[in-house]
């Protein structure tokens, strides 16, 4: 097991370097001169030139890339052009908020998605099934910003139960995590349902019934563990969509997380900050996938021994 983890971590290093390269390249070809942005528009051209040289912006692209990589490996992602602060500081300041948001959204997704998928599968083609599936379809189809605004209108403005925005109290995380988790819950519910229905057709389910097990034990004890395998993979993929969704959710609910840092970095053409947030997000996604793979091997003995 330890060997497997080490192998997986090592494999993710080239992936990470590749991602850094692509981001670095793309942000380099994007129009907009960082120096002008930083220094304002009415600056003497020779001053700009001198500054470019000092920042290493005149170097060839590949040299810039390796310099960046070298520094990044030491935890130095450069200075924010706009905010004039260490990118890593800004990220670590924003990071906890995003983690809080995505984890609570993931909890919403799992705690709602998996049970409703199970219930829908067991009650296949009944009103309960249709109800759950409609609810999940709504979650999948409703954009985060629309659901967010609706909830703010109903629960904060009309009913006054929850704060409209903010991040200081746990109550202020209720709406954002439901909004963000809902679509994932929908996907997970549908996937759980269809997998469970598929697994229930298997011969070993008949064996379990023939042993005299209760139907609940057959479903939860024998079918669910098998049905969860693809769901776990889906959860890993959803880490990225949750982080992506967090960008919008954070903006709507005024949570100063990674997503909002990235959005403002885009607006400001703040390349080091943007690069830093994207790379950091990439690392989170890689970690999510690694965890999913480990879960997979915990669930499925056929993978474990290889």
């Amino acid at each position: 097991m330890a060997k497997y983890i080490i192998k997986r971590v090592l494999i993710s290093i080239p992936v990470l370097i590749g991602v850094v390269f692509v981001i670095f390249f793309m942000l380099n070809v994007v129009p907009g001169d960082p120096v002008t942005l930083m220094m304002g528009e009415h600056i003497k051209p020779d001053l700009i030139e001198a500054f470019r040289e000092r920042m290493g912006l005149d170097d060839p692209f590949i040299v810039q890339f390796f310099n960046y990589l070298k520094n990044a490996l030491q935890g130095d992602f450069g200075m924010s052009y706009k905010l004039k602060r260490e990118v890593s500081d800004l990220i670590f300041q924003a990071f906890p908020q995003t983690v809080k948001l995505t984890l609570s959204a993931a909890m919403v997704a799992w705690l709602i998605g998996i049970p409703s998928g199970i219930i829908a599968a067991v009650k296949q083609n009944t009103l309960i099934d249709r109800g759950f599936m409609t609810f999940s379809l709504m979650g999948v189809s409703m954009p985060v910003f629309w659901a967010g605004l609706l909830m703010q209108y109903v629960f904060a403005y009309k009913l006054g139960w929850l704060p409209v925005t903010g991040y200081k109290t746990w109550q202020s995380f209720i709406m954002p995590s439901i909004v963000l988790g809902w679509s994932s819950a929908g996907t997970i519910a549908r996937l759980t349902r269809s997998n469970l229905l598929e697994i229930m057709k298997n011969d070993f389910i008949r064996t379990a019934r023939a042993k005299g097990l209760r139907e609940t034990t057959v479903v939860v004890g024998h079918a669910l563990k098998n049905a969860m395998l693809p769901v776990v993979t889906m959860m890993a993929i959803q880490v990225s969509s949750l982080l992506g969704g967090a960008v919008m959710t954070e903006s709507i609910f005024g949570i100063p997380g990674l997503g909002r840092v990235a959005v403002s970095a885009i607006g400001d053409r703040d390349m080091p900050l943007l690069q830093g947030t994207i790379i950091f997000t990439t690392m989170l996604i890689i970690a999510g996938n690694l965890i999913a793979d480990l879960m997979y091997s915990v669930l499925d003995p056929r993978i474990r021994c290889e």
Binding site: D203, F204, T207, A210, G212, R214, N226, R302
Partner: peptide
């Protein structure tokens, strides 16, 4: 259910798929 696997039990055709893989 009380009878299944207790007083009456079954062996199925497919030994490859009749056991739970996990």
């Amino acid at each position: 259910r009380e009878l299944r696997g207790n007083k009456i039990s079954v062996i199925f055709q497919e030994p490859m798929t009749s056991l739970n893989p996990v």
